[in-house]
């Protein structure tokens, strides 16, 4: 019998695994944003001494993982799994980083929700008794994402106000059985929700229903209310998606207005000309592992629900006229 399962989609950990260390690397634009003091390494340019943006992205992820492992104090040979994913075709940033890191590797894909998927799987492995130390990571890069999903960088086109900027960065965290705060207490795995969005320049409103569905399921399964959390943070809905998510939640009688924010809004300031806000795997990852992890360690926040969101599509299937399926996974982080 699944003793740790609650309701339809949620897991409650018996011995909540700890996040014992995190590390973040960000690009130059994020390094000028309001959270700049929370990041471990800020790059001066987009190439990170590499020949291509893809190689730079892989290097950022590798760097973040190495830093997190080093900070954790866990010897490298005691890392039992490396769980990672990214946006590039065949998750090459993750697997090429794994090639160099040499840890047993589980590649995952959840688009921009990857960080929550990784934390969820990692925590389940740790609380399940399958490992004592796991490292979870993800990355994205503005330039490599633009060329894969949209247009060449130097093309002189105009973007609509709903467009978002892919965060350049990588984040990694070490999950462990060690007795330390913050901990992962609950994980709610999301369903794929498709509300008929077709505009690849408006991911926020495409993903908002998935975020709302997962939040509603989490509260229902765990018998919690928004009052139980200091903060509910979605991944990368940005300004357009966040407003819609709030509206949808109000329709369901859930009022989160005073404690709800979004990583896509936190990472940039409005003057940074990023349209609706940030997106990409690194968006939720660097905000969670940089800002939120640090503030939880300081005790400013004690209970946070991270709801990372992802749009599960590529440009081929959108050109074939398909609507955009989306997903969101929720992870509850708590100081116990």
């Amino acid at each position: 019998m699944a003793v740790k399962k609650l309701g339809a989609q949620t897991v409650k950990f018996q011995n909540p695994p700890s996040i014992i260390a995190t590390a973040t690397v960000v690009g130059p634009v994020e390094g000028k944003g309001p959270l700049r003091n929370y990041f471990d390494l800020i790059l001066g340019d987009f190439k990170f001494q590499e020949k291509s943006w893809e190689k730079a992205e892989k290097k950022m992820l590798k760097e973040a993982v190495e830093m997190a492992v080093k900070k954790s104090g866990v010897p490298s040979d005691k890392i039992e799994y490396f769980i990672a994913g990214d946006l590039l075709n065949q998750i090459i940033s993750a697997s090429f980083a794994a090639r160099e890191l040499g840890y047993p590797f589980l590649g995952i894909y959840g688009a921009c929700s990857t960080v929550a998927e990784g934390l969820g799987i990692g925590a389940m492995l740790v609380d399940g008794g399958y490992a004592d130390n796991i490292v979870v990571g993800t990355s994205s890069h503005f330039c490599s994402a633009e060329r894969q999903y949209r247009f060449p960088l130097e093309l002189g086109n105009q973007r609509p106000p709903t467009a978002q900027r892919t965060v350049t960065g990588a984040g990694a965290a070490v999950i462990s059985t060690k007795n330390q705060n913050p901990r992962i207490t609950y994980v709610t795995t999301g369903k794929v929700i498709d509300m008929g969005a077709v505009d690849p320049n408006d991911m926020g409103s495409a993903m908002a229903p998935a975020a709302v569905d997962t939040i509603v399921m989490h509260l229902e399964d765990s018998k919690r209310t928004p009052e139980d959390y200091d903060l509910i943070v979605t991944g990368d809905l940005a300004s357009v998606g966040k407003d819609i998510a709030q509206k949808l939640m109000l329709q369901k009688g859930i009022d989160v207005s005073n404690k709800y924010t979004d990583c896509g809004l936190l990472i940039y300031s409005p003057e940074q000309d990023v349209h609706a806000g940030g997106s990409g795997c690194a968006c939720a990852a660097v905000v969670t592992f940089g800002y939120i992890f640090n503030e939880m360690q300081k005790g400013r926040y004690n209970k946070i629900l991270i709801v990372a969101t992802g749009a599960l599509m590529n440009s081929t299937i959108v050109q074939q006229g398909e609507t955009i399926p989306c997903i969101a996974h929720a992870v509850a982080l708590e100081n116990l």
């Binding site: 105009q158 609509p160 106000p161 709903t162 498709d194 509300m195 008929g196 969005a197 408006d202 409103s205 229903p209 300004s239 357009v240 407003d243 819609i244 509206k247 609507t323």
Partner: peptide, 15 residues
């Protein structure tokens, strides 16, 4: 899906 897209249309900022 139709209802949701209607809601989105009304919430989106216009260029």
């Amino acid at each position: 899906q139709k209802d949701y897209q209607e809601l989105v249309k009304n919430s989106k900022p216009k260029p």
